[in-house]
Amino acid sequence: MAAEPHTALSVRGVTRTFGGLVAVDDMSFELAEHEVLGLIGPNGSGKTTMINLISGALKASRGEIVLFGENVVGESAHAIARRGVARTFQLVRMLESMSVMENVETGGVFGHARRWGAELRDHARHNIARVGLAGKEDEPVGALTYIDQKRVELARALAADPRLLLLDEWLAGLNPTELQTGIELVEDLRSEGRTIVIVEHVMDAIRSLCDRCVVMNSGAVIADGTPREVLADDAVIAAYLGDAHV
């Protein structure tokens, strides 16, 4: 199973069922290092489940997930996080009783870069600043607006110095101005050469941010290519609009 050295993630024939429901059905795709991959598809097509499988929140029923050359299927979430995988959640998850600072520090202590003390604080402060929250370090996260909580989540993921970053609808629920800011932020990450999987419904974001797109429908891959290619694909259009429109 000699994966190419530049392959960050390789999903091979992965299936996940919930009782009788096949949420992810024999999925396969690859992600090269420094690549930004869009994972798109209609509601309920299995995108979040795929993210949960990669990050170890769920175990695959079948198939292989190869991270940086090693099969990690069956590994628990904390072990995968220690391999350098960081994520955000579709529904924001804040540590309510903690400050912005502590929420972000959480990312930097237990992952593959294990920081502590002054180094951790500097690192957290740096990541808080880069998501645009400088000055709010000591605020309780409960007092923040929705977009600011999303920023905290991104900063927490970045504090882990991720080798692979998984963003599950990080841009959802933002107003147009915030969306623009959000896209610029991810654009920045992309230009740093980070390896990212973006789950997104906002088409503008997908066009401007992704090198490649994998389109899912009912748990399976229905298209894989550049954003321009897949968005012009008949099967993709049918999946999004319903077969009647084709």
């Binding site: 170890g56 904390h78 996080a81 994520r87 998850r93 540590l95 959480t106 202590v109 237990f110």
Partner: peptide, 11 residues
Amino acid sequence: GDEVVARHSGI
């Protein structure tokens, strides 16, 4: 605070 966050942070 949140065990899911804890696990995904590498704990």
